[in-house]
Design a protein around this nucleic acid. Structure first.
Lengths: 262, 262
DNA sequence: ATAACCGGTTTGGGATCCCAAAAAAAGAGC
DNA sequence: GCTCTTTTTTTGGGATCCCAAACCGGTTAT
């Protein structure tokens, strides 16, 4: 259990990204105290945190205004994270003591392969794949030799779909058979990219490791963009399913509430 | 004038990066209240901010410990910022509506050229060059089309030498004639890189814009590394002069105190 | 002698109080 | 009826108070 303000910040953050607050809504400390039944101290700490994260703006006069991110904001952020990850991949490929961590990457790749082969595209399986995916990406970030890359990624991972190793699906694709096949192909493609990245790092091919990692993150961006074009009206964050460690969107699609923290 | 907690956070941050606190020193709220003559409320807000910035760690039991960054941390951070800037350069070169902002870049380059030609290597001149340098880099960040890049950079610019467009010199180099000449050459080299970046963006050569921008930031990293090797003992942040917008180190080298905010 | 226990002290989190500034509303003058 | 001024209310920042948990020191029992 975290301290109240962290918990509170998470709840408000959730409300903001899910669009419960209206684009430019004014937000007051007193109101939050009332709705969340806490004192002003944790509210202020939480608001400061959210301001730092860019989810609310503090008006110079007084008062806070929400800064709800839209899909385009998320896409931009994914691009930034992907670019940082590509730097990490390059550095890791150049690092002399990378060999000891290679088995971790290999194990994650093999586990994802195994899960894809089983072919179950239900929630539980995807979460398992997501977990191994997170392991793969986190390992590269943590073993690249530049700790500041991981730190910077962690500073921006408060937004939905920005947790390292997060995976995004659209809400309809998992409900139809054809959609499931498409998702299966997407997972296969992603893991084959993992393999190429792994081999490049193993061989010390820094340029290739960086390039494929960049391509790997572009895949996610393009997936969202393609889906964006397919929808008639404006695509909102709610239309996407975020499989990430944080799982901000969980209450939207997980009614069982069994797995509280993976 | 900012609110007290922001001011306070800046002061504590300053103390930490200048090494006034000892590597792993315990830091207590009460002590800070006493030394800075403020109540605990702003102290707590400031500590939260610094924790978010990674300059202090909160022990799960209780208490805060300082996490003083060393030169290597700064180098890693510079690498991250440079990598983000190279992404910005690439995106700007790809952006269709980049042409309207090109004159800003060109003006900054010409102004720096003019200042270098005058050849005065005193504090005031270097600050003017620094300002135009910041304009150049900020313009690229702000006009690349991905606002999240600039946002991410701003989130990490609390550390010394990480303000966008910051320039670093070592403390001895500006005191000797030979050192001044070397610095002059370094400025010329930097601005010639600016020119190449400008032309690449103008032509829409995204690959080259990205590559040269990367090289541009590597120049700063290598400068510090070369200086690091030249010194006998461990290089500290204090040994470097930081010409940045924030100028955390100002009180170290500016005794006149005339220019409070450029 | 050592280890467990117990009380005092330190310290951080949360709640409440106070105040100044700004927005909103009411009132006066034209 | 409109505008400018004054008063009221709202709201956020800072200070203080309270409390629970953790650390420290000493004492006692084995």
């Amino acid at each position: 259990m975290e301290s109240i303000d962290t918990e509170l910040a998470a709840r408000i953050r959730n409300d903001i990204v899910l669009g419960n607050y209206g684009e430019e809504e004014r937000i007051s400390e007193a109101r939050l105290c009332d709705t969340h039944k806490v004192s002003r101290t944790p509210v202020r700490l939480a608001l400061r945190m959210l301001e730092h994260e860019g989810l609310i703006r503090r008006s110079e006069g007084r008062g806070y205004f929400v800064n709800a991110p839209n899909v385009n904001d998320v896409l931009q952020a994914v691009q930034v994270r992907g670019h940082l990850e590509s730097l990490a991949a390059r550095l890791m490929a150049q690092s002399p003591d990378r060999l000891s961590t290679l088995p971790i990457l290999e194990a994650a790749i093999e586990e994802i392969d195994r899960l894809i082969l089983v072919g179950k595209m239900d929630h539980a399986s995807i979460r398992l794949i997501q977990k191994q995916n997170a392991v793969f990406h986190k390992t590269i970030l943590e073993c690249c030799g530049n700790d500041f890359i991981g730190f910077t990624c962690s500073r921006i991972s408060h937004m939905p779909m920005l947790e390292v190793g997060a995976m995004v699906f659209d809400r309809q694709v998992l409900s139809t058979k054809e959609g499931k096949e498409r998702s299966n192909f997407r997972l296969k493609l992603g893991n084959s990219q993992h393999k190429v990245i792994f081999e490049a790092i193993q061989k010390g091919d820094a340029v290739r490791a960086e390039g494929v990692m960049r391509e790997h993150s572009n895949t996610m961006i393009e997936y969202i963009q393609v889906f964006e074009k397919r929808t008639k009206e404006e695509l909102t964050i709610k239309d996407l399913i975020d499989y990430s460690g944080l799982s901000v969107m969980r209450k939207e699609h997980d009614t069982t509430g069994k797995e509280k923290s993976l």
